[in-house]
Design a binder for these strands. Structure first.
Lengths: 330, 330
DNA sequence: CTGAAAGCGCTTACAG
DNA sequence: CTGAAAGCGCTTACAG
């Protein structure tokens, strides 16, 4: 690997001058500049980023920590963040931590050790908040809400309202026996959705019927079986996310239960897949793009501000499609 | 940020000794070791990886370059690679290059500049092969096949056989009017699938009918419309990958064309989603897990060997499910 | 405009 | 077993 001193020797200048040409930090005489550029070209020189960031303490990198690379929600989020970061000259490093606290910790450490310019973490792990407070790099938490104020921002949606909207919509579509497949409680994002559903039921004299489930499709498959056993009279299901909703549909379809004729179904997230599968999934839309872009903005524009755990909530909306019998969807 | 000299001062030893304790490279007297460990604990010291890898020229990192983070095929591949790498103490850095040559180049440069220990690239971009030859770090190409021998290995599937199997299966299921939605030609992976289909048709006196399409679902949607217009008598479709197959199904469903009764459908890849949607997709299985694990193995075990562009082909198989009327699937 | 020098935070011969 | 020193490949005051 050619280094900056090799280039300097070949161009007959000092390493400092080569550095100046590369970075454009200080004017350099036209002829020397030429020679340096030619030498760089000839030698195929590429500046060593490691050395560079050792000095600069910035690596033009934003870390993105997601709990699962298999859930399209996170994958879409990562994709917008990626696009937004690239527009500003940053790259992202994606850490797929498999919902594992140790891996989350490791990712955070690596990012800190690698001079990352900030980290965007989508994690529900309560235990992570202590960790977060250890680091001084900018941190944005997306799709979760913790107690600690030691982060630059929390970006999340009005999940409670989402839960309400789902219950309300199903009721408007004629359902009387709603069952909520809620995510693991204790997690804010899952809790709020459930509470929205619950409050709506209470206010409208509906029986509250609940089943609990992890956010992935394997869990969704088995939990749906259980649901049908425990609540055979169910006519409307609120799923905790779209992947689970897709699993629910799969089981219903397998059992020849017509959707939406016998059972109606509402998902949560509005991932691309929701409108790609057949029937298209009625779901609660999260503004994933807006959240991702905002996250990058906070890191880059407000990362230097003191951490105050500011909260920003994004609105959700119900998108009626083919798994419910709404008037709008026909 | 506390540095190694701060720790050294507090423990009353030299920085070198601290380094030895951290790395376990040389025995250190028990009492000093104790003091160092305590100091590290108290100060919350984390060794700076950038400085470390500047010296070591290894960053315990494997770069993974994928063309799209939205196609579950690549996401599943990245996930196995991630798992396999972590088992060996390496982490991966995922670059989502949006099928863009400039982004691919940039990713490669960054990886080289970041002292990556190897790179696994899933890209069909012919133009990339020149680039690949520039770098001396280990390179494995997955799901593609180029001419250059300047890579450590090509890992791919017997796509040709996959194309044949799909055509053969549809024929066995009673189809007489096969249409192949092939990927953009010129790419080996797409070409070979098509040729398998084509040769089967020729050998069995079937008319070859083709439509061309990008590998994502947006393209699949519009191409299906075109297909139905051009080949109204179609009764069997070979799709270039599962995401496209899902789009095909969507359009057929929208038009009330029964699958598999009126038109039968075979996908390619066997991503998780293929068996999650309803109806389950009949598809050509690629051993994604085996390929991903093998890729890591090559980087880590054979990365130091001279680059000879060795090729390793993995077998494919047809998985009959619900979008075809095979006897086995019922 | 330019070079010599010091330093980013570590690690490893080298000499004891 | 341990410390002083040199160096990984860059960048930026500093002095001209």
């Amino acid at each position: 690997m050619a280094g900056i001193r090799d280039v300097a020797r070949q161009a007959g200048v000092s390493p400092a001058t080569v550095s100046r040409v590369i970075n454009g930090t200080t004017p350099v005489a036209a002829d020397k500049r030429e020679r340096v550029l030619r030498a760089i070209e000839e030698m195929g020189f590429v500046p060593n980023e490691v050395a560079r960031s050792l000095f600069k303490k910035s690596s033009k990198t934003i870390g993105v920590i997601i709990p699962s690379i298999r859930n399209p929600y996170f994958t879409q989020l990562a994709d917008v963040i990626d696009a937004a970061a690239k527009e500003r000259g940053y790259r992202i490093v994606l850490y797929n931590v498999h919902h594992d606290l140790d891996q989350e910790r490791a990712a955070l450490q690596m990012l800190a050790a690698a001079n990352a310019d900030g980290v965007i973490v989508a994690s529900n792990n309560e235990a992570l908040q202590e960790e977060l407070a250890h680091y001084q790099m900018p941190v944005v938490v997306v799709d979760a809400l913790f107690q600690t104020r030691q982060v630059n921002a929390y970006l999340y949606c009005d999940y409670y309202q989402g839960g309400r909207l789902a219950a309300e919509h199903l009721t408007a579509c004629g359902c009387r026996n709603l069952v909520c497949i809620r995510g693991v409680q204790g997690l804010y994002t899952a809790q709020a959705r459930y509470e929205g559903y619950r409050d709506y039921c209470r206010e409208h004299g509906l029986t509250e019927q609940v089943v609990e489930c992890d956010y992935d499709f394997e869990a969704g498959l088995s939990m749906t079986e259980e649901l049908l056993e425990r609540f055979p009279q169910v006519d409307g299901i609120v799923a905790c996310n779209d992947m689970v909703a897709i699993s629910v549909y799969k089981i219903l379809h397998k059992r020849n239960i017509a959707v939406p004729d016998q059972i109606q179904l509402v998902g949560f997230d509005d991932i691309h897949l929701a409108s790609l599968i057949s029937p298209e999934l009625t779901t609660i839309h999260q503004p994933i793009d807006a959240m991702g872009r905002r996250a990058v903005e906070v890191i880059l524009n407000e990362g230097h501000l003191p951490k105050e755990g500011r909260r920003q909530s994004f609105p959700v909306s119900l998108v009626p499609r083919e798994t419910t019998r709404s008037k709008e969807s026909r």
